[in-house]
Design a protein around this nucleic acid. Structure first.
Length: 278
DNA sequence: CACGAGACCTGTTCGC
DNA sequence: TGCGAACAGGTCTCGT
């Protein structure tokens, strides 16, 4: 579940509180349990526990697909990868087999990191840049103009789909939104990035903003067994719609592999470019 | 430089 | 019905 819109949704729930949980801000961390050691990217479980106890949660934020919690002295950072989830729960609720890290807070609450596939990671660092330094710009940053996107696209010769997934190029886009953005822009996923015209780049820029903003308004996408209350999955135009008619032209949606990732597109609305990168 | 393959993991769905 | 294969929202490392 966790691309930019989903992480943004989780951050908002933790920051403001949800239907059955209060806001996290201001709560003190009284204890913690590391239930799957590899979840902790840094530091070691012993140092993590020692260092985090007694700190207060000061702010919640997001950068790319990372969820950021500013503490009184350090920064706690999560990457949810494929199946991670963060929620505030009653501390006396039973643990599921998928709980990987729990932080026990004042007031009988716990911040729980659940992650069936165990790919997710957490860091406790004094400077967030230790984790975030390599990330590209935020796709929704007002500073990122279509002209600048055009110039960045021109600098390398990559398949568009792969470039959108590259977190050093743009931070936060994943497999769902890459496909949806390319469809909205009418661009084939195998188009070489340096062959786009400035008009193509402008359409890509607009589509990226439109798709991500709409997904955020809809609280992200909920598919498979993970459900967060988002409903953008009901508005997918190509993602996981292989063989179904394109909503724009009726042609069946195609699925190919690009860089080992399932890639969905409409062969009519997103015609193969003159020189696709096969 | 850009790409493919494999690794890390578990759970669900698909196809025979 | 059962069972193995394929697939899944991500990223890293290695070899070509």
């Amino acid at each position: 579940m966790p691309e930019l819109p989903e992480v943004e949704t989780i951050a908002a729930i933790l920051r403001q509180g949800g239907p059955d949980s209060p806001a996290l801000i201001g709560k003190e961390i009284l204890g913690c349990a590391v239930l799957w050691e590899r979840t902790l990217a840094a530091p070691t479980p012993a140092e993590f526990t020692h260092r985090i106890i007694g700190q207060q949660i000061v702010a919640i934020g997001r950068r790319g697909k990372y969820l950021l919690a500013a503490l009184s002295r350090d920064h706690l950072i999560f990457h949810l990868r494929m199946s991670g989830d963060l929620a505030l729960e009653r501390d006396d609720a039973p643990l599921s087999p998928h709980h990987r890290l729990t932080l026990h807070l004042e007031g009988g609450w716990r911040l729980a990191f659940q992650d069936p596939r165990k790919f997710g990671r957490a860091w406790l660092v004094s400077d967030p840049q230790e984790v975030l330094a390599g990330l590209g710009p935020e796709p929704l940053d007002e500073q990122l103009t279509s002209q600048e996107l055009f110039e960045r696209l021109r600098r390398q010769s990559r398949r568009l789909k792969s470039l959108l997934l590259d977190q050093t190029f743009l931070a936060g886009i994943g497999n769902i939104y890459a496909d949806e953005i390319l469809h909205a822009a009418g661009l084939h996923p195998l188009t070489p990035s340096n062959r786009l015209t400035s008009l193509d780049a402008e359409r890509l820029w607009r589509s990226m903003r439109q798709v991500l903003n709409e997904a955020i308004v809809r609280n992200g996408s909920s598919i498979d067994w993970v459900y967060r209350g988002g409903d953008f999955q009901n508005y997918f135009r190509v993602y996981r719609r292989t063989g179904l008619p394109c909503f724009t032209c009726g042609a069946p949606v195609q699925r190919i592999l690009v860089g080992q990732r399932g890639t969905h597109f409409c062969p009519v609305c997103q015609p193969v470019p003159a020189s696709p990168m096969t």
